[in-house]
Design a protein around this nucleic acid. Structure first.
Length: 478
RNA sequence: CGAGGUGUAGCGCAGUUGGCUAGCGCGCCUGCUUUGGGAGCAGGAUGUCGGGGGUUCGAGUCCCUUCACCUCGACCA
């Protein structure tokens, strides 16, 4: 069967209406449901299981780089939030406030954290005294609240889950290294677990995080050519340290300010998985974070030996994989469609004909290929297939990304590309905010990043024609 | 926050110029038969017509108001 054939009538075709396709997929595949609170989504078991797998693997990468997990309160006193000027200005429009405890009005209202820089800073100012206390490499897995005007499941919800790392270092250099290290952790994670290639780079002044000196980003390209800022890492310098008086005595007994970073990856990454790998039949999940890596569908389960063998197979595979045996009385065809919609990477069919020949039929979700596997050495065969699926997904996504990055050296080309070709545009920039604003205003594209791998497309700014200083990747973004 | 759209059973929808007991498909429950791409038959359950107010002898239908969700823009992980 061809993998591209549309088999699930309930899902809108991607090329017909991509946003509707997305909505159909998140609901029909039971990742989320809408809740009774505007803009807030319920992460259903299947959706949360993906997040758990993301957490498990990314958390290990944090541990491997020396980080410790903590949990900060979800409330921030207004006075604390206001200590760093740029930071509060950036977040003020979208914070939710607690004004009452029971029926008592609070003396000072409490903000529900939109991010926790101020909490970490306040804490760091208490616990850091000596150079021996540094570095502090903290992370937390929590939800945050931002009062968004337009919300979409995973991509922008009022409350969302994420991790936020917050570190304090003795020197600026150490903090810069940490910022880049964690950006690379994100890029590696996207490649090795989500099978998504990203473009690494730096945000412009306009796009950087409120209160940061520098913001770095990994940008992924969705199926429709739009960009998704997929994780960010910030270098703060000593700006927060000065605002919060986070000082330590160095080896010469001199008081010094710490240098800080923060970095985050959210449930938005699940949106990236959906929009990078999904197809007209629904989700396509990368094997390493798929809640169900392999589903076993017995055929004619009432016939002698079929169900017994299927159970035996499940027990064996479960030692190494997340495996499900669907022995419900639904029709096999129904099950095929159901698990395709839910993006299960590999399906194994086992029927009477297979039993006779000591084999089963495996079907890949990524390309629809059917493969006859011997029941001997099945664990190894499945492992190989899952790895191939991961690699196949990554290569397909990489090809999709690379084939849709265009160069523009003049305004005319740039405007045509942005208007007509979904994807990213590489173009030179003089560094002026005015040009960045003009491009957004006139063309609807924003600067995604100043990529680390700079390509000199031209000598002059694509907008104003003055000498260019940097190559920028432009695109329409979620 | 601006423009547009939609709210009727779990889901998708129909419901005429206001008129009788609010329907249909799917799903769900029970039983039997089926099983290699969304099975068949028989029986069964399910409604605050988004909420509130009004007009009327009578409102799912008309009016006012409010809430939610979706799409597109302006602002943001």
């Amino acid at each position: 069967m061809a993998g591209k054939e549309k088999r699930v009538e309930a899902i809108t075709a991607m090329d017909q209406d991509f946003t509707q396709w997305y909505t159909d997929v998140v609901l029909k595949s039971e990742l989320i449901d809408y809740s009774s609170v505007k803009g807030c989504m319920i992460l259903r078991p299947y959706g949360f299981a993906i997040w758990e797998n993301i957490q498990k693997n990314l958390d290990q990468m944090f541990k491997d780089t020396g980080h410790e997990n903590v949990a900060m309160p979800m409330f921030i006193p207004e006075s604390l939030l206001q200590k760093e000027k740029d930071h509060v200005e950036g977040f003020a429009p979208e914070v939710a406030w607690v004004t009452h405890g029971g029926s008592e009005k609070l003396a000072e209202r409490l903000c529900i954290r939109p991010t926790s820089e101020t909490l970490f800073c306040d804490h760091y100012s208490q616990i850091i005294q000596s150079w021996r206390d540094l570095p502090k490499l903290y992370n937390q897995w929590v939800s945050v609240v931002r009062w968004e005007k337009t919300t979409r499941p995973f991509l922008r919800s009022t409350e969302f889950y994420w991790q936020e790392g917050h570190t304090a270092h003795a020197t600026a250099q150490e903090a810069v290294e940490e910022t880049i290290r964690m950006l690379n952790v994100y890029a590696d994670f996207y490649r090795d677990y989500l099978a998504i290639p990203v473009v690494k780079g730096q945000k412009t002044e306009k796009e950087k995080f409120a209160g940061a000196v520098d913001t770095y980003t990994v940008e992924a390209m969705m199926h429709d050519g739009k960009a998704l800022q997929s994780a960010t890492s910030h270098y703060f310098g000593d700006g927060f340290a000065k605002a919060f008086e986070i000082q330590y005595s160095d080896k010469n007994n001199q008081l010094q300010y710490v240098h800080q970073t923060s970095w985050g990856l959210s449930t938005r990454s699940i949106g990236a998985i959906i929009m990078v790998h999904g197809d007209d039949s629904g989700l396509v999940l990368p094997p390493r974070i798929a809640p169900i890596q392999t589903v076993i569908v017995p055929i004619a389960a009432h016939k002698a030996g079929v169900l017994e063998k299927a159970k035996e197979m499940k027990a064996e595979l479960a030692k190494q994989f997340r495996v499900k045996l669907d022995d419900s009385d639904k029709m096999p065809g129904w099950k095929f469609s159901e698990y395709e919609m839910k993006g299960v990477p590999l399906r194994i069919e086992l029927g009477p004909r297979d039993l006779e020949q000591n084999q089963c039929v495996a079907v890949r979700r990524d390309n629809g290929e059917k493969i006859v596997l011997s029941l001997d050495g099945l664990t190894e065969s499945v492992q190989t297939l899952l790895d191939e699926i991961h690699e196949g997904l990554y290569q397909r996504a990489l090809e999709s990304l690379n084939s849709r990055i265009y160069d523009a050296s003049d305004w005319q080309t740039m405007s045509e590309l942005i208007a007509e070709k979904p994807g990213f545009v590489r173009a030179m920039w003089c560094g002026d905010l005015a040009c960045e604003l003009m491009i957004k205003e006139e063309l609807g594209a924003t600067s995604r990043c100043l990529p680390f791998d700079q390509v000199k497309v031209a000598d002059t700014c694509v907008c104003c024609g003055k000498p260019a200083v940097k190559e920028v990747i432009w695109g329409k973004a979620y």
